[in-house]
Simulated scan of single mutants.
Amino acid sequence: MKKILIAILAACCVWAAYDYSRPVDRYVVKVTAAEGDTLWHLVGGVMDSEGDRRDVREVIFWTRKISNIKGDLQPGDIVLIPIEVRK
């Protein structure tokens, strides 16, 4: 039983090292907010379509920072969404 657990742990470590070493494409997607849009909706939709697997809350945080969004999202606001996709 101990040998199986050690083998599983080693396989997990190898997989994590492989996943961490894969190259990452980083870019910004520019979106214009429409009536009724929320950051959660815009960021989540772009992340899904682009294949970004990070936590949406983290991306919303960085989106607010780089887009200089202080309060609520207004129609016509330009939203810059930072995307990271592993190859």
Rank of each mutant, 00 (worst) to 15 (best):
A11G: 06
H41I: 04
V79P: 00
L42M: 14
M1T: 01
Q74H: 12
D52R: 02
I83N: 03
I6Q: 12
D19S: 14
E84I: 03
M1F: 04
K2G: 13
T38S: 14
K3G: 01
A11E: 11
V79R: 00
S21T: 08
K3W: 07
V46K: 09
V59I: 11
I4D: 07
A33N: 05
P75Y: 10
R57D: 13
A10V: 13
N68C: 07
M47Q: 10
R86T: 12
W15Y: 14
I60K: 02
V43A: 02
A11Y: 02
V85P: 05
D19F: 10
D72M: 07
G44H: 00
K70P: 07
D25F: 06
R64E: 03
K87I: 09
I83M: 06
W15P: 01
K3H: 07
V14N: 09
C12I: 15
G44M: 03
L80G: 00
R22P: 00
V43Y: 08
K65I: 03
S67M: 03
C12R: 12
A10K: 13
L5S: 14
L39V: 05
I81W: 02
C12E: 14
G71Y: 15
A33W: 05
C13R: 11
A34W: 01
L9I: 11
A7K: 13
V14C: 12
K65L: 06
A16C: 13
V43C: 00
I4S: 02
I60H: 01
G45D: 05
G71L: 11
G36M: 00
Y18R: 08
R53I: 09
R22Y: 06
K2W: 08
W15V: 14
G36I: 03
G45I: 03
